[in-house]
Design a binder for these strands. Sequence first.
DNA 1: AAAAAATGTTAGGTTAACCGAAAAATTTAA
DNA 2: TTAAATTTTTCGGTTAACCTAACATTTTTT
Lengths: 155, 155
Amino acid sequence: MIKKKFSSSVEDYLEAIYFIGKERGSVRTSDIAFFLKHKPPSVTEMLDKLSKKGFIKHEKYGTVSLTLQGMRIAEEVSGRHNTLISFLELLGVDRGTAEIDACKMEHILNRRTINRLRRFVEFVQRAPKEPEWLEHYKHFVKTGEHLECKSEGTK
Amino acid sequence: MIKKKFSSSVEDYLEAIYFIGKERGSVRTSDIAFFLKHKPPSVTEMLDKLSKKGFIKHEKYGTVSLTLQGMRIAEEVSGRHNTLISFLELLGVDRGTAEIDACKMEHILNRRTINRLRRFVEFVQRAPKEPEWLEHYKHFVKTGEHLECKSEGTK
DNA sequence: AAAAAATGTTAGGTTAACCGAAAAATTTAA
DNA sequence: TTAAATTTTTCGGTTAACCTAACATTTTTT
């Protein structure tokens, strides 16, 4: 049922509206322009498109809000975003880079791939205890060497 | 240093030329069109652009070959592709989906992110023995449950 | 409440990357 | 060695997503 595909841009706008709405309460053209680093005319244009598609309500010279359908999409995208951020940070990617890359990946990855990534994140987060191998991985990233579990400390 | 950024499309074409060249020896417009599932006029247009940028040699009505610079880029992209494929398959994403998603990710991810992913792949592949946690992860994907070190025993 | 400032929209333009139809060159076959 | 078939290019479109400049509306002073 939820199989339609939207452009990266459409998803970005819906996500931005969703995010700004949560942060600031109301959402206006300039907020979106600022958030997405686009110019106001581009925003107006896209808002028209999103209105026609039924994803938002937009009163001229006024505020923007998500319809139910728009909200559904925005939450879906936002969920992917969060999964990706968590995943990238697990891997030791810095916050800034993680944000940038998550924003791109969230639009292109297959559902199955995202699911695997989410599973991976859950696997780590819900582990009964802090998994050793993650420490080992981080060591490996730094040094390129495997420090073997019990026998030897490479150091 | 390799700091320039090319469009996804440019990278796709160079990668395709690289790949076809290795597979079939010579590369022609129709090969690329088939490979990328584009129409010949699109290919001709892009070949002109790539020629002007100095990434390929292309004789009219003839064959295409990568210049040194083009080769360098193609190899770089192809390397990213391989890293991504390996990574996705580690995570249990099926071949087909992995191919599709790798082809998209390879153009957008930050170098740092790719490096982390490569490290991750190496971490697993170069481990002295098959890491247990990978088994545990796969179990977790299937069942949603941790079969954790109750008494230490998989094997 | 009128002028000034800020914000939003309209109109027109640009660019990248695709396309189909038709022309041109090359290759194949009769 | 011409004619037919195939491949490649040229030419003219299309679309999405951006932009600037100019105009319209709303909000904020004074």
